[in-house]
Design a protein around this nucleic acid. Sequence first.
DNA 1: ACTGGCACTCGTTACAGTCGAGTGCCAGGA
DNA 2: TCCTGGCACTCGACTGTAACGAGTGCCAGT
Lengths: 340, 340
Amino acid sequence: MGLDDRKLAVLRAIVEDYVSTQEPVGSKALVERHQLGVSPATVRNDMAVLEEEGYIRQPHTSAGRVPTDRGYRLFVDRLSRVKPLSPAERRAIERFLVGAVDLDDVVHRTVRLLAQLTRQVAVVQYPSLARSSVRHLELVPISTTRLMLVMIADTGRVEQRLVELPGPVPADDVTDLRRLINEKLAGARLSETPPLVQVLVEEAPVTLRPMMTTLATVLLETLVERHEERIALAGTANLTRGGLLDFQGSLRPILEALEEEVVLLKLIGETEPSTTRVLIGDENEFDNLRAASVVSTGYGPGATIVGGLGVLGPTRMDYPGNIATVRAVARYVGELLAQN
Amino acid sequence: MGLDDRKLAVLRAIVEDYVSTQEPVGSKALVERHQLGVSPATVRNDMAVLEEEGYIRQPHTSAGRVPTDRGYRLFVDRLSRVKPLSPAERRAIERFLVGAVDLDDVVHRTVRLLAQLTRQVAVVQYPSLARSSVRHLELVPISTTRLMLVMIADTGRVEQRLVELPGPVPADDVTDLRRLINEKLAGARLSETPPLVQVLVEEAPVTLRPMMTTLATVLLETLVERHEERIALAGTANLTRGGLLDFQGSLRPILEALEEEVVLLKLIGETEPSTTRVLIGDENEFDNLRAASVVSTGYGPGATIVGGLGVLGPTRMDYPGNIATVRAVARYVGELLAQN
DNA sequence: ACTGGCACTCGTTACAGTCGAGTGCCAGGA
DNA sequence: TCCTGGCACTCGACTGTAACGAGTGCCAGT
């Protein structure tokens, strides 16, 4: 375990060089480009140790060294210095996000912004319904036996469901239903609604009972239980940068994984603590993505977290830069949401 | 212009073979696999003519022939026989589309279904607001000086905008505004609303005038003028099927084009007549997509068209099959929409 | 008008040889 | 003990050559 400072410096140099050149880096090139103060031979000895410990490897004999997932991990945990955003980037973020007209717009702008700044694939989760509160529930008559149930959440999300009623319902009843439902549910966190909905059905006047039951069912089944998560994606074209050298020649598995909402949610959602998460290579649980890394974090108004966002790219990515960008964008989005 | 029946048969055979094998097809293989009733030498003569006319070409001397865009065009226009859907496919369509809970759900299911059936990239346009009518406009108070304007269209689309009011507004006024707006606009086609909105502002009671003006502005600017079109995409992983042989080795331009909503809309939207449109290779206007073909059609409840859907893939695609699938899916979606 | 035969083209594959980046190891020096 | 220069070695990348074969164009014959 003899990883003295110099060996760590060598590892850092290897990671930085490899990330920027995309080519295995040799001992000679290393001492030329970095002020390590020692000879190539010494560096070679250090490299041999680093390789033994599993931090770097040789693609083949007589080639330079390349960081392993474990090497990147060490780099991210202990070696990378925070890279402050350039003023230009800060300006880009602000410019990009002002003028959004609704939540959809915010999310779309955010995901494109992230993709553009990091030059990776960007993923943004819509504010999770599970972490949202009900702001208002609206009932809009569509026909005599149909209502549209519109739920507006405090996070700005708006979900609608078509409800097929058991029988025709007079306009006055709709008004009553709307009032009853909002009295009981407005302000409640969505996760806390089931018992409230239960009470709502029980306390409903007998004439409204059937409608209320139907509404309750739709509400619980389609909004609470399988709480629809939504995801926005951008920058898939960035996957083709490294000219197929990243991702060992096939984008197939990556693209497939990106089509699965479940996968994306696992990657960027559920980031319990309010910290930035970095998943490197096979640290993530999906085989399709073992050649990729993910940098993600939560966002939300103030200190609460309502959703996740992040970027995905080759393990050979600029971790410090991407971490800084992801954090900054998340903070800006949070502020934007707090304003609404 | 001597394109007799046999030459056309040869072209058809070339297209069919090339589509299924992905390899340039030679005269010998052709007579083996198809009952052309003539010798390879004869076929070669026909091929020479076809090449002269620009319907096929040789990637290099001593290779077989490959259809040109023009060849595919002729094939699609005159040579392809309609390929009826298999019962399994019909069942898949029905199974896939039942149980959709809202428009989002319908669109997502549709796009995934299309991608799965055709094994191409699928694109579905949400029902265009420009072709929708207002079913209901709802005003939901968010704070004393903020309203959420929710528009529900007859196509099922629901759009919301946050409106910053000039001053605090009492609940009664909101009720009045809601009533006035709906009286005037409900049922109107979105494209016909501008004059109505104008009248609405003019006729509004003096006390409501400022609010109404603000609402009108938001309504016109964000919903009517730049009528938000939305697009769903699926199956990008299918681009990697031909193993990078299609798209001359780089998915880059394709992926870039797919990220541009404007491009996608031009491709699948605005299909004026209710027919299926096929764009082959450089027939479409985007350089990025000159290696791709698009099969698209309009859909909508009954005879009206509210949006477009289609698939995109390599010029070397199964046109008859994709055309049949796109048509069938569009019809099913139309029926589904008609039910609501 | 079709067909068999034949010379020709040219991409593909295999193989051998050279080059050079990069390594591991070792002996010597601070 | 640690670092360094030197040196032999490995092995992928590149190059040139040769054999192969799919496919063609053309022509003379039926």
